[in-house]
Design a protein around this nucleic acid. Structure first.
Length: 234
DNA sequence: CCCGTGATTTAT
DNA sequence: TAAATCACGGGG
């Protein structure tokens, strides 16, 4: 099915980011992904959120990147695909993390998506996250019609604020590894914002959880929206 | 602060 | 084949 037709069938949604958006260096893509909308279709329903935090991984030589040594393995294979594909990996025996592959084929760079501001399908996300306790349901916090209307703040801010949390919320696992975000009917990114963010709207700092990466540990390759409440850590 | 959890990678 | 590691999250 053609993309426009898919969008129409699904309803909602704006134009999707195209191949050329992703075929750039990971730092540029990491910054420009901020404010765009990640969408996952599950059982015909849209789960979506605005990307508010990202990290760039610079490929061969970047000691924090899975492609640091330039060796293509069963796990990191997707990093060598063309820009716009998904790289999903499994770690710590229980967590998935989602990256957007950047630049051209054979250049193994990527952007880790670290946090979303959830906008659609919040009750499904809460269920996927195991945050739908009996008490939460009894209090009638869901099914009120308004998306985040009755959702308690402590649940809301734990939905997608972390790379593994957002994967759990949006049902992202290894089956989505290698999927093409430009053409997939179930996993893609929509343009929710046109033009560039002002530089002062973006906070830049060291990547999280890469202390082992020696001289690469402190490079300012993490980006998030200034003042946004949904980043994984302020 | 510590710990679960198991695939993947690296060292013997 | 064995050991160490890990782009994390949840619970004190």
């Amino acid at each position: 099915m053609e993309h426009g037709a898919v969008r129409q069938q699904i309803g909602l949604g704006g134009p999707r980011l195209g191949r050329e958006f992703y075929r750039r260096d990971p730092v540029t893509v990491a910054k420009e992904l901020l404010g765009q909308r990640l969408v996952r279709i599950v059982d015909g329903r849209r789960l979506a959120g605005l990307i508010v935090e990202t990290e760039a991984y610079l490929g061969v030589g970047d000691k924090a990147a899975h492609s640091c040594r330039g060796r293509r393995t069963a796990r990191n294979n997707s990093m060598w695909l063309d820009g716009g594909h998904a790289y999903v990996y499994f770690t710590y025996g229980m967590h998935y993390c989602f990256n957007v592959v950047t630049d051209r084929q054979e250049i193994p760079t990527a952007v880790l998506v670290r946090a979303l501001e959830p906008t659609e399908g919040l009750e499904v996300m809460a269920k996927n996250r195991g945050l739908l306790t009996k008490e939460t349901v009894e209090k009638g916090l869901f099914g009120l019609g308004e998306e985040a209307g009755g959702l308690e703040a402590d649940v809301l801010y734990r939905l997608c604020s972390g790379p593994a949390r957002l994967c759990q919320a949006m049902a992202i696992d290894r089956r989505l590894d290698g999927v093409d975000l430009v053409t997939s009917e179930v996993f893609f990114i929509e343009r929710a914002r046109r033009g560039r963010l002002r530089e002062d709207q973006i906070v830049c700092g060291p990547r999280v959880g890469v202390a082992y990466a020696e001289e690469w540990a402190d490079k300012p390759l993490r980006f998030y929206l200034r003042g946004n409440r949904f980043v994984s850590r302020p």
